[in-house]
Write a protein that binds this DNA or RNA. Structure first.
Lengths: 350, 350
DNA sequence: TTCCGATCTGAAATCGATTTCAACTCTCAG
DNA sequence: CTGAGAGTTGAAATCGATTTCAGATCGGAA
């Protein structure tokens, strides 16, 4: 397992290291016969360039990082998988940072990556503003499903506003008028947009938006459980619930199940994400589908073009782009027409 | 954001680069006053060593990698999270490789990592033998929950055999005599051990082991679904099922649910792993618990000591260790005493 | 024939650290 | 007083690539 160096290859071919290096990085500069000879020799002895030497001399940076909020959440796990494969195809090392929404962890990861001259970072989480600004100054950044500030950082998001509308319109079509909404943490802009879609659709249909119909969740399963508990304390129960992500919707489903509230007969439920994994569980959730593959692919392409210096310059600040991926509504088994009958009396736990 | 070099620091302190380097790597060699002065200056200007330069000159390798079978499976997601944090604490970059049990992907990842002089690889999956041998020759390796060959590669596994026994003994105590087993892919040795525990426990209790009571799964949810379908084709249905992992057990649960087979009244079910996530779903699964934290921590420590060259030498081949972490049985809600009544007739789908 | 430019190649500097080796200063035993 | 040895420090080589710059070769236009 001896590794050859570029000068050894050069010696073997009776040429100079410079030429061998050119074959590697700029083959056009080397005449064909020599180039072929060098290539053959490299192949023959299994030459691999020393990655540290080349990065040192070419002054290049290193690898990509992906920040995710919670790797146990399949939405993020799918992102990790997809970005991981894309990076692999390009032979770019990818460091996955599972921050668990912890600012301290975020900071430590980021410091570390910047010290190590990371070439770029993709954020798929509600990262804090200071972190994001620091990253943005020192390396290339792209946000997935997160809005920062117009024109400052490239973002790829689903059309959360339209998604919010799609869900709400669908529920209205089913005659629901009393629709609960489960939101996300305050630093998660996507949920805000979904809420806006929900709210504006209601108002356009002359249904007053009521604050108490919004429960602030945290994206996790347990939030959904607590949300349903909360909604049941209201004098007037919602006949449908729109959750800002699937995990919380499944929390609702589970809690409803244990309270003997049947879905969709007693309560309609609609999620957001449409994670394939969840559909394996008995009930197929109706949900707004995000096109995770498209989100990832687009974000990754933007990152690549940044790495290749294709973001020409920053003269007009318009180098940072914002891409919006459309959402679609996937009809499952958790919504039904509201018949106007009052919600069935149910027993409460605890 | 200018980065200082070691010679600039040296100049600022009126000393030589060699001394500055020593402060970094071998502080004992530098007299205290000078050392402090240099440290203060580095602090002051925010000096960070160039990682490529130091690796090039010290001839060191780079980072760790973690291979997992399927990142969507929470068992592996938990491993990714834990190892990720451990690596972060040590400031070691970690590349996560989600192989999806695809040999081609395995190979590509591995080639790539070896070319990049990865310092070590932790495998948490049923990686193929050729891959593992190649890795082992060129870098440090540790296996999690996977057996290779005694004394050749360090391994950390749960006590799968005892886990298999624990589950089976528990079911026997509950009077079950007809116990189905859902296994794993053939290259996954842990499942073999669990099966051995199951089989030997049965035989010690003079219950004949029957081949048709073993269904070969693939660790995924769908396998559990198919397993239950299979068991229902048998002339004599099992009264209990022991699944080699939780995901397949949940497949059984889900399928049972849709077939109106109630668990645990009609069928007892026991899983393996005890992933916290799953317990959020309505039914709390009875399962053999693996101590994932201990698995990861131990594996990581072994890796660190290898990286620090503490595996003195290979003279007697005994440098590679095998650590076994005990399992415990967690009683949930999916097992009940077998009353001897014949399994209720159920309607079949499809 | 001469000269220019295009094409190709090699010598040498460079990237930013680490490490060897030698030199220098002190202390202290003989 | 001398010399050995410990403790400190700096000069310079080295790691393995990239890149600049200049020189060599060749074809074709004047």
């Amino acid at each position: 397992m001896v590794r050859y160096t570029i000068s050894e290859i050069a010696k073997l071919c009776g040429t100079s290291p410079a030429t061998v290096s050119r074959v590697l990085n700029n083959p056009g500069l080397v005449a064909e016969p020599l180039r072929d000879r060098i290539r053959k020799k490299m192949e023959e002895v299994g030459y691999k360039p020393n990655p540290f030497a080349s990065r040192l001399s070419s002054q290049s940076r290193w690898g990509l990082a992906l920040f995710v909020f919670d790797i146990l959440n399949p939405f993020f796990a799918l992102i990790v998988r997809k970005i991981g494969h894309l990076a692999m195809e390009q032979r770019i090392p990818l460091t996955v940072c599972d921050t668990e929404n912890n600012e301290e962890k975020e900071r430590i990861y980021l410091d570390y990556l910047l010290d190590n001259k990371i070439a770029g970072i993709i954020f798929a989480e509600g990262i804090s503003i200071p972190t994001i600004e620091r990253a943005q100054q020192q390396t290339e950044t792209v946000l997935i499903d997160r809005h920062y500030r117009e024109g400052l950082i490239s973002e790829v998001t689903s059309d959360n506003y339209m998604g919010g509308r799609q869900a709400t319109e669908y529920l209205l079509q089913l005659n629901h008028r009393n629709i609960g909404f489960i939101g996300g943490p305050s630093n998660w802009s996507s949920a805000e947009e979904r809420l806006r879609g929900y709210r504006e659709t209601l108002e356009e249909n002359e249904i007053p938006f009521r604050k108490e119909m919004v429960f602030p969740g945290d994206l996790r399963f347990e939030s959904g459980v607590r949300a349903l508990e909360y909604f049941l304390t209201l004098p007037e129960w919602p006949s449908a619930i729109f959750s800002a992500n699937d995990q919380m919707a499944f929390g609702v489903l589970s809690k409803a199940n244990s309270l003997n509230i049947s879905i969709p007969e007693d309560l309609s439920l609609i999620g957001f994400d449409d994670i394939p994994v969840y559909n394996l569980y008995t009930t197929i959730l109706t949900a707004v589908r995000q096109d995770i593959d498209a989100l990832c692919t687009t974000a990754f392409e933007i990152m690549l073009s940044k790495l290749n210096g294709e973001s020409a310059g920053f003269e007009d600040g318009s180098e940072e782009s914002r891409t919006v991926i459309p959402t679609t509504l996937k009809i499952g088994e958790t919504c039904s027409k509201y018949t106007g009958s009052p919600a069935r009396r149910v027993q409460r736990n605890g």
